[in-house]
Amino acid sequence: MPTLKINGRRVTVDADATILDAVRAAGVEVPTLCHFDGLEPWGGCRLCVVDMSQAGWEDDWFKVVTACNHPVDEGMTVVTDSERIIETRRVVLDLLLARCPEAPLIQELARDYGIEETSYTPNPEPDDCILCGLCTRVCDHIGVSAISSADRGWGREIAPPFHKPPPDCIGCLACAEICPTDCIPYETSNIRRTIWGKEFEMLRDPKTGEAVITKEQAEHFAERSGVPITYFETSDTSKRRQMASTFQKLQVVK
């Protein structure tokens, strides 16, 4: 188990940990936008940059690395708040604020780094999408891959194939839930759900009538897990009731 020095404080972490894990274990805060525990680190937003020095390097040798996807090593030294790191994050946030001048999360983070207004020309067509790729990555992760990034350069965007309702989408809302700036619109009710222009019918609990899940999502989960589809259409209330009645039938054996 490697031991590292984070801002002068020693921490010991698992060998397969990343610098971000170690930094968090040391109780130090590093901002992230494209990171989500459970998804493969991506290093796309560049906000989690830190200064890192390996064992055996000269004392003043430091390299700027993204903490989220850099593995730890014995004797590593990490500094999360050096002048150039703060400056790097400031530039990233300044650029993000130019792209998304109206996104509250970006405004807040920028303010933390002393930026009230972007020094670049703000996007004339404000967009809250920061292209962090969390939505497409979570969609890939659950084995659906209904959306992807399209085009490139300044025209890059997240889109379903051919900008039409995605045939593969199961309406699970994972993309909308994971989006750090909440910029994926959707509508959901007890009967219907709409996301990416595709309409879904909700499966309702046969006993309580509550809408739990879309038909497509239940089928996808049932197929992947081997659990019968009826499990997924049962609402939490129904499950609790079932459990209560099961317990009622149990007799205490003395």
């Binding site: 891959s145 992807s148 194939p161």
Partner: peptide
């Protein structure tokens, strides 16, 4: 390959036109 991936590749390269 997911259709979304094919679409992504098709729109990424300038030499492809939809």
């Amino acid at each position: 390959v997911p259709l979304a991936k094919v679409f992504s590749v098709s729109t990424f390269y300038k030499s492809f036109s939809l």
